[in-house]
Design a protein around this nucleic acid. Structure first.
Lengths: 198, 198, 198, 198
DNA sequence: AATGAATGAGTTTTCATTCAT
DNA sequence: TATGAATGAAAACTCATTCAT
C-alpha cells in the first residue's frame, strides 16, 4: 500500500492528460472518446464518471490552463514595463508557459474556435489577443511604437504568429528543442516589435 | 428543360460555393453533407453525382484555388523584385486573391491540416509558407533583411499573421470592408518587413 | 411497375404498424428501435428518416388514433341519447373502434402515462374518461342514474374496466374472438350501467 | 457504531420504501438504481449488499406485500359471507390494505406485467382477479348475482376499476383523503355488485 | 456495513454514401 | 441530371453491476 495506492483524482488527471494528447494529435472531432480512454488506460465508462461529455473534457482543459494564462498576462500588463518587454513576456507565457505542454495551448487555440458548442468560451479565448492590442496601443501612446500601424491588426499578426509556431510544434513541422523554443520567442517578438518600432 | 438558363456544370459550381460557405462557417467536421446541399438548393444525392465524397469536396476546393495561388506565388518569386515587395505580393495574393473570397483560403488553411484523410495534401498546403521562407532567405542574402533572424520562424510568423487575419474576417471578428482589407495587407507586410529590415 | 411499386409513405406505415405490435408485445421501454425496424423489415436508419426519435414514434401512434377517438366520443356526447346508450357507444369506440387493433389502444393507454417524456400528452389521454364522467353526471341529472354515486369514481371504474379488458386481449389472457369482443362490450356497459341505474 | 439507533436491516427497509416511491413515480424502466439509492440516502453500492439486482428489488416488493394480499383474500373467500360482502372485502384489501401505501399496489399491478424478466410472477399476480372471478361465479350459483353476465369479464371490470383508482391516486389525479378512499371502496363495490345483482 | 471508483455491454442516434426511379 | 428513400457503420452516452477499500 506504500506506493501502489492511487490518490483520488489521479485517474481524472490521467484522462485529462490523455485527452490533451489525443486532441492535439488528431483534432477534437476526429478523436473518439474510446481513443482517449485507451490512451489513459481506463474504460470509457470511467471517463463519464468524471466528465459529463466529450465537450466538457475540452472545456475543462481550456479552463484549467487558460485562467493561469489570463492571470499571468494581466500581471504583465500591470507591470509598467516597456511595451516591447511586455510583448516578450506575453510570447513567453504563450510559448513556454506550460514548458513542455505546447499541445495544451494548441488544442485550446485551434479547437475551441472550431467547436460551435463551445463558442461561448470565445470571449475568454480572445482575451490574450486583446491584451496584446492594448499593449501595442499603449506603446504607441508613449511613443515607443509607430502610430501609423493599426494596433488591432498588429496584435492579430503577433498572435497569429505565435499560433502557427505552436501548431508547427504540435504537428512536428518545426523543431521544438529548448533552444528552438527560446529562438522562437525571440524571433516573434523581435520581428514584430522592431517592425513596430519608430 | 423549361429552364435552359442553367448551364451544364452550374449546379456543380453552386455546390462548391455552398461548401466553402458552410465549411467556413461550421468547420469541416461539423458540416453535414445535407447542410451543403441545402445551402446550394439541391438534393444531397446530386452532390454525389459531381463529387465522390465529402473529402473530395474539400480537396476540390483546395485544388481549384491552391493551384492558382501556387502559380501566382511562383511568379512573384521569379520576378526578381526586392524581398519586401515580394512579401507584399504574397500577402496580396493570400488576402485578396479571390477578392471577396477569404472564406476559401481560411477553409483551406485551417481545415485541410485537421483532416487526417487529406494529410497527403499537406506538402502542397505548406508551399506558400515555404515560398515566404525562401523570399526571406534571399532577402537576407542580398542584404535587404537582417541575418540574425531565423527565416523559418519569420515565415511562420508572417504566414500565421495572414492566417489569423483571414480567420478574423471569416468569424466576423475583424472588419472586412475594402479599406480594411487594404490596410490589413499593408500592416502585415509593414510590420514584418520593417521588423526584418536592416 | 404495375404492382411492385411501393407508394410513398408505405414504408412509414409499415414502421408505424410494426412499432404498435412491438410496443404492445414488449412495452415501450423494453422495445429496441432495432426490433421495430426488424419487425417492419427495414433498416433502423430508415426509421430515423421518417421519425426523429423513438418517442416520436409513440407520440405519432397516439395522435393518429386518439384524434379519431376523441372526435367519435364527442359525437356520442352530442347525440342526446340516453346516458346508458352513450356509455355503450363509448365502450364500443374504445373496444372496437380500431376493429382488430386493440394493441394500438393498449399501447396508448398503458405506455403514454408511463413515459415521463410524453406526460404533456396526458391532458388528451384522460379526455375519454372525462367524457364518461360527464355522461354519467348528465345521467344523474336526468334521473336515469342514481345520484348517490360519485361520477368521478364511477367513470374511473368504467374506464379501468375497459383498460384491463384491452390489456387482457393484448397479453393473451382473455379470448378475443368476435363474439368475445361483443360480449365484453355488453358486459362492461351492463355491469356499470345497471349498477348505476336507479 | 456511534449510531446505535440504526437497527440491523433498517437500511434495507429504507431502500425498499424508496424503491416503491421511485417506481411509482417514474415507472420501473425509467427509474435508475442511483435514483433509488439517492431517495433512500445511501450509496448505490449498499443497495447491492441487500439485493442482487434491480429486478430483485421489484420482486421483493411484490413478494412482501402480495403474500399478505393473497392470504387475506383467501380468508375472505373462505368466510362464507355473501358474494357482495366478499367483493367489498377484496376491494378493501386492495385499496386500503397498506393504509397509506397504495403506491405499493400500483407498482405491482402496473410494473410487473411490463417487465418481461419477471413474467414468471404473473401466475401469482393475477390471483386476486381470479379470486374475484370465483366469488362472482359463486354468487351466480347461489342466486345472489345474475347469471347472464360473464364472470371472467365482470371480474376484469371490477379489478380494472380498482387498478385505475390506485393509479389515479399515485399520479395525483384523484383525491386520496381518508373519506376519498372510503368512498372509492364503496363506489367500486356498489357499482359492480348492484350491476351484478338480480 | 458502506462507499463510490471502475467496468463494459447495450442502446439510441447520426450521417456519409448508395441506388432505384 | 436530379431526387430522396434506403442503408449500415460508427460514435456518444447510459446505467446496472462489480469490487477494492
Amino acid at each position: 500500500m506504500t506506493d501502489r495506492s492511487i490518490a483520488t483524482g489521479e485517474k481524472r488527471r490521467l484522462i485529462l492528460d490523455a485527452a490533451v494528447r489525443v486532441f492535439a494529435r488528431r483534432g477534437f472531432h476526429t478523436s473518439r472518446v474510446g481513443d482517449i480512454a485507451e490512451e489513459a488506460g481506463v474504460s470509457h465508462g470511467l471517463l463519464y464518471h468524471y466528465f459529463s461529455s466529450k465537450d466538457e473534457l475540452l472545456e475543462t482543459i481550456f479552463r484549467e490552463t487558460w485562467d493561469e494564462v489570463l492571470t499571468a498576462i494581466a500581471a504583465v500588463e500591470a507591470s509598467g514595463e516597456p511595451a516591447r518587454e511586455q510583448l516578450r513576456q506575453v510570447a513567453k507565457i504563450l510559448l513556454r508557459g506550460w514548458q513542455t505542454q505546447p499541445a495544451r495551448t494548441t488544442v485550446i487555440m485551434r479547437e475551441i474556435a472550431r467547436t460551435p458548442e463551445l463558442q461561448r468560451l470565445i470571449a475568454d479565448l480572445t482575451k490574450p489577443r486583446e491584451a496584446v492590442e492594448r499593449i501595442i496601443r499603449r506603446g504607441q501612446e508613449t511613443g515607443e511604437f509607430r502610430e501609423d500601424v493599426d494596433a488591432r491588426l498588429a496584435s492579430t499578426v503577433f498572435y497569429g504568429g505565435i499560433d502557427d509556431i505552436l501548431t508547427g510544434w504540435v504537428l512536428g513541422l518545426l523543431p521544438d528543442g529548448d533552444e528552438d523554443v527560446a529562438r522562437a520567442e525571440l524571433t516573434v517578438v523581435d520581428v514584430v516589435s522592431v517592425g513596430l518600432a519608430r
